[in-house]
C-alpha cells in the first residue's frame, strides 16, 4: 500500500500538519480529510511541514489550492516549511512560490503567524 501519513500538531494557535511519504492521487483524500477537520474546528492557521515527504503529485498540490482561499478568508493561511529540494522543485515548477510562503524551518512559519497577530 501507498506509504503516506498525515499527523497534526498544535503549536499555540497554529496547527502543524506533518506529511510523510508519498502524496499522490491515491493518498490526497487523507490530506483532504485533515483540512476538513481543521476547518470544522475553525483552525485556519496552518503550517505544513514537508520534512518527511518524499513525493508530491499535482493532485496533492491541488488539495492546497482547494483550501487556501478558505484559510485566507478567515484571516489564516497555509504556509510551507522544511521542503526537500525535489519536492520544492515541483512547487516551483508550477509557480506556487508566487502564491504561498515557503520557510526553511517550521518555527519561522509559526513565528510569522504569531507576529501578524
Amino acid at each position: 500500500m501507498a506509504d503516506f501519513n498525515v499527523n497534526t500538531r498544535e503549536v499555540g494557535s497554529v496547527r502543524v500538519i506533518e506529511l510523510k511519504g508519498y502524496l499522490d492521487a491515491h493518498t490526497a483524500p487523507e490530506l483532504e480529510n485533515t483540512f476538513n477537520s481543521l476547518i470544522n474546528d475553525a483552525n485556519f492557521k496552518v503550517v505544513v511541514n514537508f520534512n518527511s515527504l518524499k513525493y508530491i503529485s499535482s493532485a496533492g498540490l491541488g488539495v492546497f489550492m482547494a483550501y487556501v482561499e478558505t484559510m485566507r478568508e478567515n484571516s489564516g493561511d497555509i504556509k510551507f516549511t522544511n521542503m526537500n529540494k525535489d519536492v520544492y522543485n515541483i512547487f516551483d515548477l508550477l509557480g506556487f512560490p508566487m502564491l504561498y510562503e515557503f520557510f526553511e524551518d517550521e518555527d519561522l512559519a509559526i513565528q510569522k503567524f504569531n507576529n501578524s497577530l
Binding site: A28, S57, S58, L61, G62, M65, A66, V68, L94
Partner: peptide
Amino acid sequence: LTYSIIGQLLVT
C-alpha cells in the same frame, strides 16, 4: 480530476 487541475494549473 479537479485536484489535479487546480494543483497543476494553480487555479481556484
